[in-house]
Every structure is written in C-alpha cells, then in structure tokens.
Design a binder for these strands. Structure first.
Lengths: 218, 218
DNA sequence: AGTAGATGCAACATCGATGTTGCAAGTAAT
DNA sequence: ATTACTTGCAACATCGATGTTGCATCTACT
C-alpha cells in the first residue's frame, strides 16, 4: 500500500520488474485476469503485489507507463526525422514491432490520466506525420494522399503484424515483418497497376477494373 | 432466469430487442459495463434483463450470435462467389462495414462455445479466400501474393474503417469508406510505382528507394 | 553482526456485481 | 372480461476480487 516511499532495496526492485513482466504476460492472455493470477505468475504472494502497487489500476498504469517509455525509445532510435523516408519507415516499423510484440497488453492501454504518456503518443503522432510528409516530398506517396488515413492504416498494419509475430520469438523475423508492413502500406497487396491492361487473361466476362468509381448497384 | 420457455409475447419480444440494442451501445463504449448500466440504457429494470438472459455470459453470447447472423447475411448478400472480383470486393466491404459500424462490440466477440458462430466465421473465411483467388486469376493480385497476409490486412482495414465510421451516421458514406478500403488494400497509400524514377525531386542526399531489401543496419 | 527492509502467510474487512424471489400492478391475447 | 404473461420494485443471498493488517522469517546492505 505504498506508492512512493524512497529508494527500493535491490531485491525489491527486481521483484517489481518480475511482477510487471508477469502482469504483461498474464494480462495479454486475459485482460480480466486477477491479481492472484498475476502474483502466481510472478512467483510471489498476492500481498506482495499490493505492497508494490497500491491498486490494480496503479499496476496497469505502471505497466502502461513502462511500455510507453520503450515505445518512445523505439521511435526515437529510428531517427525518423533525419534518415531518408523509406529507411526511417522501415526502421521505425521494426523497432515498434519489437516493442508491440513483447508488450501487447501494455501498449493496448493508452494510459489514461497519465499526461506524460499522452504527450509521448502525441509526439509520436507528430513525428509520424512529419515522416509521411517527407515521404510525400520524396515521391513515395502522392501529394493528394490523405495522411490521416495513411497513419491509421499504418498503425493497423503494425498492429496486425505484431499479432502475427506474437508466436514468433526469432529476432530477425521482425525485419521481415517490418518489410512486409512497409511494402503493404505503400503498395497494398494488389498487383502493380498496368497502365494499359489489354484484355487481362480471358474467362468470365468480368467488367474490367473501372478506375475508382463504385462498381455495382447498392 | 428462463432460457427457452416457449414463444414470447409481443411486448416481451420487443423488450429483448431493446435490451440487445442497449447492450451493444453500452458495451461498445465500455466492455466492462455492468448489467445495471445496460438495463438503465434499455429503460428496464435490472431484474428484467436477468429474466430474459439468465447470465451476463448468456446476454453477450446472444449478442454475438445475433451479430453473427447479420454478418453472414451481409457477406452472402454481396454474392462474393459469382460477381466479378472487384465488384464483389467492394460490395462485401460495404455490407460488412455497415454491420461492423452498428455492432462493433458484438462483432468483436467471436462467440466462444458457439459452434454455429464458429462455422459462420470459418465459412466467411473460406469465401474470402476464394474471392482472393479469383482476384488473382483476374490479375487484380499477383500470383505470388500471400493470401493469408492479404486477408489479415483486409480485415484490419475494415476494422479501421469501421472505427472511423463510428461517428458517422450518414449512409452512403459507407460506400466511400468501402472504396477507400478496397483501394488501399490493392494499392496501398503510396504513389503508383514509376518504372524509372529519374532523380525524384532533389534535396537531402537520400539513397533512392532501393527495391525491397532491408535498408539499414540492425 | 546488526539493522532496516522485504516477503510469505493467514486472517479479516469491504464492496460491487451477479443472480434470486415474491408480489403487486400493468398489458397482450383469446 | 378473463386469463396468462410481463414488468418494476424491494429485498435477499452469494461470491469473487480487492485491499488491509500483524507477525514470523528471511535477506540485503553497512
């Protein structure tokens, strides 16, 4: 039931880390898991958890804050503001994936009531925006691309890739995932657009892909 | 505390629908919302909710089942097996979006312990797969596209679009969202690939986009 | 070695959510 | 109009999760 006494002893510090890691694992599997389960997973008594984190809420918040730091570092380490857009894109993606895979629960909680976390997320958002703008200037994205939508798609793809990477432990596979995310973000999963598709293959009299209009009736 | 007596009276039937709709609204906003809150939102007493749905779990399952039906209908109605791929893609997307926007919570619960719901989802998955195959044959997707990944991306994009469409009530906007999803799925948010990008714009000595290799170190 | 801190354990207190029951009053159906 | 179903209300029972306390034992730090 203490929140901030003073410096913790070495073993206590270790216990805190152990609890946080256990909490991540357990809560990722079941967000409604009980303190009891978390304590068990951490190999400590339930009372010890309460000693370190006054309330369940405090524990989750600590988890979120902890993950947010990693997240921020992951983005910063990619230097998305200075390296060439495509490189930065890949780098950021890989780094963030790494974090999201290991801290999926914590990352799923945009720490409410934590102004620091909010600041970080806003900051990252801004950096993402700037990166995309640079991507536009570099001709990677066309000038009329909706950056808001692009960002959402980007986030969604990262989330999806992280999900897929859940069961993967192999490092290096992360780079492959990142490559796929970036490629998909920029070019989708479709075939490259032929400028003049004269009679595709043959077969059912399908109406050829009409630019971008709405195809059928309702 | 009844599960299946026999035919309900007309007003009771209405009450059930009212409760389900209220549950959807409330639970979408807060998945941990209490029966009390749901009852309040439905404008009935808490005991009435319990009269119609024995347990909380039963209510959620009913919700999921209900939404699953809508979902299945939405997919079927698009005739994804017979209409030309691009048309089907748009149609399916629009229909599913419509459902996901209105039943986000229910749709987020792949009804566990409900074999029927599982069957539906598996069925939809299969149809999605077949549709993508046809898209490949039609040249919409290249032959070496990973259909598993394509499906995940597709689902993720729909999810994202539904999220964005949450605050939108306007029908017709759904078609625009669908168009954007399909376009993004196939072509991403990047600029169309120029076959020979001679010196993009100028500026920082950025290493030009190198095909698909991993850019940096690490 | 001595001390302050840390942990486990058992026991207790609280609280909110869930689920139940009985009854009076209202409403659909024949 | 009569009947059977439905609802609201109030009260009760249960249960699990959370949070607390005291004490004995153990461990890190000086």
């Amino acid at each position: 039931m203490e929140t901030r006494g003073r410096a913790l002893r070495a073993d206590a510090e270790r216990t805190v880390r152990t609890i946080l890691e256990a909490a991540e694992r357990v809560l990722a599997a079941d967000p409604t898991a009980t303190m009891e389960q978390i304590a068990a997973a951490a190999g400590v008594a339930r009372t010890t958890v309460h000693r370190r984190f006054a309330t369940r809420e405090a524990l989750v918040e600590a988890l979120a804050t902890w993950a947010t730091e990693r997240f921020h570092q992951a983005v910063e380490a990619a230097r998305p503001l200075t390296s060439p857009p495509l490189v930065a894109l890949h780098q950021v993606t890989a780094n963030v994936l790494q974090v999201k895979i290991g801290w999926s629960f914590a990352m799923s909680r945009t720490a409410p009531s934590d102004p620091e976390a909010a600041r970080v997320h806003a900051d990252v958002l801004a950096q993402c925006d700037r990166l995309f703008r640079r991507a536009q200037e570099a001709g990677l994205m066309s000038a009329d691309t909706d950056l808001e939508w692009a960002r959402r798609v980007y986030y969604a793809l990262i989330h999806e890739a992280a999900e897929e990477g859940r069961e993967i432990v192999d490092i290096g596979a992360v780079d492959q995932l990142a490559a796929r995310v970036v490629d998909t973000l920029l070019h989708g999963v479709g075939a490259p657009v032929q400028t003049l598709p004269r009679r595709p293959v043959g077969g059912a009299g399908s109406s050829g892909p009409d630019a971008d209009g709405h195809p059928g009736p309702r």
